[in-house]
Computed example of a mutant assay.
Amino acid sequence: MALLGTLVAATAVVVAAPTGSAAAVPTRIMALGDSITGSPGCWRATLWNRLQSTGYTNIDMVGTLPAQGCGVAHDGDNEGHGGFLATNVANQNQLVGWLSATLPDVVLMHFGTNDVWSNLPNTQILTAFSKLVDQMRASNPAMRILVAKIIPMNPSSCTECAARVVSFNNAIPSWAAGKTTAQSPITVVDQWTGFNTATDTYDGVHPNAAGDQKMSDRWYPALTAALSGVTPSNPPSPSASASPSASPSPSAPPSVSPSPSRPPSPSPTGGAGKSCSVTYVIIGQWPGGFQGELRVANNGTVPISGWSVRFTFPNGQVISQSWNGQYTQTGSTVTALNVSWNGLLSPGAGTATGFLASYQGTNGTPVPVCTAL
């Protein structure tokens, strides 16, 4: 199996260089997908730092979701929505709003894992892919689109998922060949070959640090080819940058629907100039369960070394799994503390921590309070 299936000539992806003395406008890159891309999706941090170190500095990662840590500085904006199905995103026209808000020039799409887990037909998933591509091109007729053959999946709860992934990936190249155009080329990036769920994931689905490095290494040549009109400020280096330490992301049930978030709550200060805010977000919800997220930001005037979020569930919800935070629950009251790598926040910086929880009947939204430490 070829490492990279490029469906168009390199000349089709050249970006016109700016003329005159005006500063070049950064190329805007959207990473689109599910929890493999965004919860926390540390392959994006590895890829970003490799691009920076090899001279591709005039780029801007865009998305309506913030970075979720990963332990290294990086431009972490993304559209990696944990638990989302590509078919639902297409059917509900969710991508249209994300595109309008971010205006990308390039899209990296690793999508379909939850659709495959849900045993949806390949034709249905690829029909959704076609609609998403049409929406990308409506936003930008010259959109450069990189579509992944998704990484292997072998969760203990889905013995047939591994074979389904192979079947789905085998259908992608012919779909892409029929959908690519000279103005808006589609490049297929093989993320499957050489990826081992036993050594490159921590749960059979989500990449660990080794998996993040492999994903970054596969994206890099395809993305730099798409950025062929962006001249590196330094000669490219063939070696990859070190991988950040990945943090667990949830293996959420595949079929979810997004819910609105509660605006950031006011927070008590933890000292002179120290302050933080927190936004409670329901990422996805299904009968009896949901995925939640706490988005913490330093809204003070000095750096903070840590944070604590406290809230009380109004309907007896119970947390069963968490990541990127230390959670304790007593009755309906929950306290979430930072972990070692996401506590230090400069003014204006933020991070996120998430969880899976169950509910019965009503899933009311609590009012969280953030304390800066």
Rank of each mutant, 00 (worst) to 15 (best):
P185W: 02
P185D: 07
T187F: 06
T187V: 08
T187E: 10
V188L: 08
V188G: 08
V188R: 09
V188F: 08
V189Q: 01
D190R: 01
Q191F: 04
W192K: 08
W192F: 13
G194W: 02
G194C: 01
G194P: 03
F195S: 05
N196S: 12
T197R: 05
A198G: 13
A198W: 02
A198S: 13
T199E: 11
D200A: 00
Y202W: 06
D203I: 11
D203Y: 00
D203V: 02
D203P: 09
D203T: 02
G204K: 11
G204H: 12
V205I: 15
V205Y: 03
P207D: 06
P207C: 12
P207V: 05
A210C: 06
D212H: 11
D212P: 01
Q213L: 14
K214Y: 07
K214A: 06
K214R: 14
K214E: 08
M215S: 11
S216Y: 10
S216I: 13
S216K: 00
S216W: 02
D217W: 01
D217L: 08
R218C: 00
R218D: 10
R218M: 09
W219C: 07
W219A: 09
W219N: 05
W219M: 10
W219D: 01
Y220W: 12
Y220E: 04
P221M: 11
P221V: 05
P221S: 00
A222Q: 02
A222T: 06
A222C: 10
L223N: 10
L223H: 01
L223W: 04
L223D: 04
T224G: 01
